[in-house]
């Protein structure tokens, strides 16, 4: 998706890796930040390790843990013992996860300081990634306040001609597993938990659908406007874009007759289930009434008969 990519000023060649960020990472960092902002301590910098899995060129960043600093304010360094102990702990329960980088909250990269931390993580992973999250979210912003950086060796005058590492922006997309989606959906919308009436469930289900459809409509409106503007010559014609729009439009309708048929079958099944459940409900009620009738009848005629009405 177009807008999942984030453009950063210093776009470099990078390592060609593709980063997939999972929601747990974002919420973990948010938790770390909130905790630190409310329980201020010495060396309470919001700093941690990113864990993930790499398959081919794709890196899934799925988890994090906090790092600790040792030493005085300016000279504070990552506590290596703590780091390796934490790493082992996560290895025990998530054997597939490796350290893939580190994170920090703040507005912008502080080259010198961050490169120092980067080097420490570099001892564990040869090409770590650095995630910077801005805890101040701009009003009206639609993008996550998160940037990813890799390092690149570059020759600069400051280092006297020798190549030295520099941060360059890296692209990322947000990815999630089904379980993550359900949980995020649940907390993002704060769906009432547990004992909800069926009406509430239906409402929340429908609201979710409605919002998604609205979003879809908005996106389509944007495309439509662009195409219209191009037609009227207000903006230059972008043939590549038009081709994409055309292929998107041509994909409709998506369903083949087979899909249609299956949907029909599913539909019938669902109706049947609804029918059966209502029947069962009716039966249960009937059963209750009969029992009550029997009980009343029996108590009235108990002296005469020992038999129920039905």
């Amino acid at each position: 998706m177009e807008d999942d990519r984030k453009s950063v000023p210093a776009q470099g060649e990078g390592s060609g890796l593709e980063f997939k960020l999972h929601p747990l990472v974002i919420i973990n960092i948010s938790d770390h930040f909130t905790r630190c902002s409310l329980n201020v301590k010495e060396n309470g910098r919001v700093l941690g390790c990113l864990l993930g899995e790499q398959t081919g060129r794709i890196v899934h960043i799925t988890n994090t843990f906090e790092m600790r600093l040792e030493g005085e304010n300016e000279e504070a360094k990552v506590d290596r013992n703590f780091l390796s102990a934490k790493k082992e702990q996560y290895k025990t329960v998530f054997p597939d996860l490796e350290v893939v980088g580190w994170y920090r909250t703040g507005g912008e990269v502080r080259e010198v300081e961050d490169l120092r931390t980067h080097a420490v993580i570099g001892e564990v992973n040869e090409s770590p990634v650095f995630l910077l999250m801005d805890s101040k979210i701009k009003e009206g912003s639609r993008d996550l306040p998160i940037s990813l950086y890799e390092t690149e060796l570059r020759v600069s005058s400051a280092s006297g001609g020798a190549p030295s590492p520099h941060f360059v922006g890296a692209k990322y997309t947000v990815d999630s597993l089904e379980a993550e989606r359900i949980a995020v959906d649940q907390v993002a919308r704060i769906v009432p938990s547990g004992k909800t009436s069926t009406t509430d469930q239906l409402t929340s289900h429908m609201t979710g659908m409605q919002n998604a459809v609205k979003m879809l409509r908005d996106r389509i409106a944007v495309i439509l406007e662009t195409v219209k503007a191009m037609r009227d010559g207000k903006i230059p014609t972008d043939h590549g874009l038009l081709r994409e729009v055309s292929s998107l439009a041509r994909r409709l309708p998506v369903g083949t007759s087979k899909v249609d048929h299956e949907l029909g079958a599913d539909y019938d099944d669902t109706l049947m289930m609804a029918h059966l459940s209502v029947m069962t409900k009716g039966n249960a009620k009937m059963h209750e009434v009969i029992n009550k009738m029997n009980a009343t009848y029996d108590s009235r005629v108990a002296s005469h008969h020992r038999r129920g009405l039905f």
Binding site: I26, I137, V174, A188, L216
Partner: peptide
């Protein structure tokens, strides 16, 4: 948390597709 709430809001901008 307040930050969580903001982040979830932004996350949903990427998530709505999954609903459909």
């Amino acid at each position: 948390s307040g930050l969580d709430a903001n982040l979830f809001e932004l996350l949903w901008n990427k998530y709505w597709v999954s609903t459909l």
